[in-house]
């Protein structure tokens, strides 16, 4: 009979275990969301984290050990960002016709995302390091981490706040837009891409292909703009 402790010490030392766990948790979460008809509250990222986090806690596995396996998936965020070029090119003609709404909505959404987070956090008396970590929350994870570090935030805290922002945007966008009776898929997608980066974009692709393409544009443009404006706004407000 195999010694369970020995087997565990082997498995917990290779990236295989947590890489497999991450993929399986997502497959399960995604299958569940599909079966439920992709309702806004059944967010695949949130459900996957809720499946994995307790397992790590029970097995006393620290995040660094988990990340040795999960880094292979995390790495794909870069190529996936590049891949957004295809839906952008597919929609280039319609994008050309709405350059003015896109650029002005980008500016409004991005500035409101950064300023409202900083002002609310100041009003609620959060510590400065947390406020700085919050400032780039609406932009995509790899960009937000760099910005957070540059302005004096805590990058690992920023990563979590970015993911939470994405989940909040993905969960609230459909009810909010339905409530406001917004039927333009371009406007709906673009808003969630600017405010809730890739997780919002993933949600938009679940609902409508045009919304997904515009969410991708919003996310990509906001990655650019946030990295430029956060250092300026932080100097002015904090």
């Amino acid at each position: 009979m195999t010694d369970v402790a020995q087997l565990w010490s082997y498995l917990s030392a290779t990236p295989l275990l947590w890489l497999t766990a991450t993929v399986l948790a997502y497959v399960l979460a995604d299958a569940l969301a599909r079966r439920l008809g992709n309702p806004p509250w059944a967010n695949p990222v949130l459900m996957s984290v809720c499946l994995i986090a307790p397992v790590l806690w029970i097995t006393a596995t620290d995040y660094a050990t988990y990340f040795e396996g999960a880094q292979f998936i995390h790495f794909l965020l870069g190529p996936a960002t590049v891949a957004l070029a295809l839906p952008l090119v597919d929609n280039l003609d319609t994008i050309r016709r709405s350059v003015a709404p896109i650029l002005l909505a980008l500016l409004a959404g991005s500035v409101v995302a950064v300023c409202s987070a900083i002002l609310l956090a100041l009003a609620l008396g959060l510590p400065e390091a947390v406020i700085l970590s919050l400032s780039p929350k609406s932009t995509t994870a790899p960009v937000a981490l760099g910005v957070s570090e540059a302005v004096g935030g805590i990058p690992t805290l920023t990563a979590v706040l970015v993911i939470l922002t994405g989940i909040i945007g993905a969960v609230t966008v459909t009810p909010l837009m339905t409530l406001l009776r917004v039927r333009d898929w371009r406007a709906r997608g673009f808003a969630v891409g600017v405010a809730a980066h890739g997780i919002g974009t993933a949600r938009a692709f679940q609902v409508n292909q045009t919304a997904g393409a515009y969410a991708g544009i919003g996310m990509a443009l906001n990655a650019l703009l946030t990295s430029l404006i956060v250092p300026l706004i932080v100097r002015w407000l904090v």
Binding site: S98, A100, P101, I102, L104, A105, L106, L107, A108, G109, S110, V111, V112, A113, S116, A117, L120, A121, L124, L126, V130, L134, K137, S138, L161, L164, T165, I168, G169, T172, V173, L176, M177, L180, V182, D184, R186, A187, R188, F190, A191, V192, V194, A195, A196, G218
Partner: peptide
């Protein structure tokens, strides 16, 4: 933190969607 994230994300979406539709 949850209050900040929820309110700020909703405000950002409102600002973006309102501007997009208004300018369009």
């Amino acid at each position: 933190l949850i209050v900040v994230l929820v309110v700020s994300t909703l405000l950002a979406m409102l600002a973006a969607v309102g501007t997009f539709i208004g300018v369009r």
